[in-house]
């Protein structure tokens, strides 16, 4: 239990700054993540919170290696995947899944629901992918009759269930969920959260859940890290952090007081 699934050490990420004025040469880099260090233990449910633009999505995309960090290391199960090539990552892909914020854009509009769930399985050599995909439709409480529909024929909540089935169908070790309920109405949000809770418990998933909705985090996540301008300002057990925030930023987030503008120093440091 003690050895973590993901170990993140001094993670840095910089991207080319497309807004910077330049005449020649490569675009200058702008730092987005500034030295993050934390572990995600097996079976953890980790909340990642922070205001808009604090780097939550960027961090998430590094964890599932949609982005390549520019510094530090990420270990998955002890294997260094920080700079793994697509070829080397192939072996780990099954274990690093992601549920996207907007299923309308992340589910291919021209693939049927069945194909959306079965294709990941087929790619990883899972036998009887279609049959297992139909089972998954039951697991996410959609029902098999949705198999032949297309994403635009579903409601927002149904679409997000397909997104969940697609990720969970691979029985990955790690799932990243990036603001997966923010586009839904409140009652649908609650259903999706309940479903996720259920699946995490049943399937021994390790979950990182990005949200700006602290009540959802409080309900779903045992641990939480608080991000501000690409740095971790606080980390620990959810109950502890929210009952006694050590950092004024956390307290401010929690009481949803308008946050003061960040000074330039944050971005440049």
């Amino acid at each position: 239990m003690a050895d973590p699934l993901l170990q993140v050490r001094d993670l840095h990420l910089a991207l080319p700054d497309l807004n910077a004025p330049r005449l020649f040469g490569p675009a200058p880099q702008v730092g987005i993540l500034h030295g993050l260090t934390f572990d995600i233990p097996r079976g953890a449910t980790l909340g990642i919170v922070g205001e808009s633009g604090s780097g939550k999505s960027t961090l998430g995309r590094c964890l599932v290696r949609l982005l390549e960090p520019t510094g530090g290391t990420i270990l998955l199960n002890g294997d260094d995947i920080t700079h793994a090539s697509p070829r080397d990552l192939a072996a780990h892909r099954r274990d690093l899944q992601m549920i996207f914020q907007d299923p309308m854009s992340s589910l291919n509009p021209r693939h049927s629901v069945l194909r959306l769930i079965a294709d990941p399985m087929r790619l990883h050599g899972i036998q009887d992918a279609d049959a297992k995909a139909r089972d998954m439709l039951d697991r996410v409480h959609l029902g098999r009759r949705f198999a032949d529909r297309y994403p635009h024929q579903l409601s927002g909540g149904q679409r997000q269930r397909v997104g969940i089935a697609r990720a969970v169908g691979l029985s990955p070790r790690f799932i990243l969920a990036d603001e997966i309920v923010s586009g839904l109405d409140v009652s649908t949000q609650a259903q999706i959260i309940r479903l996720l809770e259920e699946l995490v418990a049943d399937m021994d998933l390790t979950l990182a859940f990005i949200s700006h909705d602290l009540s959802v985090i409080r309900r779903l996540c045992r641990e939480v890290i608080v991000l501000r301008a690409g740095q971790i300002v606080e980390a620990g057990a959810t109950s502890k952090i929210f009952s006694a925030p050590a950092h004024p930023y956390t307290a401010a987030l929690q009481s949803s007081i308008a946050l003061p503008e960040l000074d330039e120093g944050w971005l440049l440091s």
Binding site: A90, Q97, S105, S106, N108, R166
Partner: peptide, 15 residues
């Protein structure tokens, strides 16, 4: 630029 292309990377599809 659509997310379904990012999603294809995550499920392990080749380029």
């Amino acid at each position: 630029r659509m997310d379904y292309v990012a999603s294809a990377v995550v499920i392990g599809r080749s380029r």
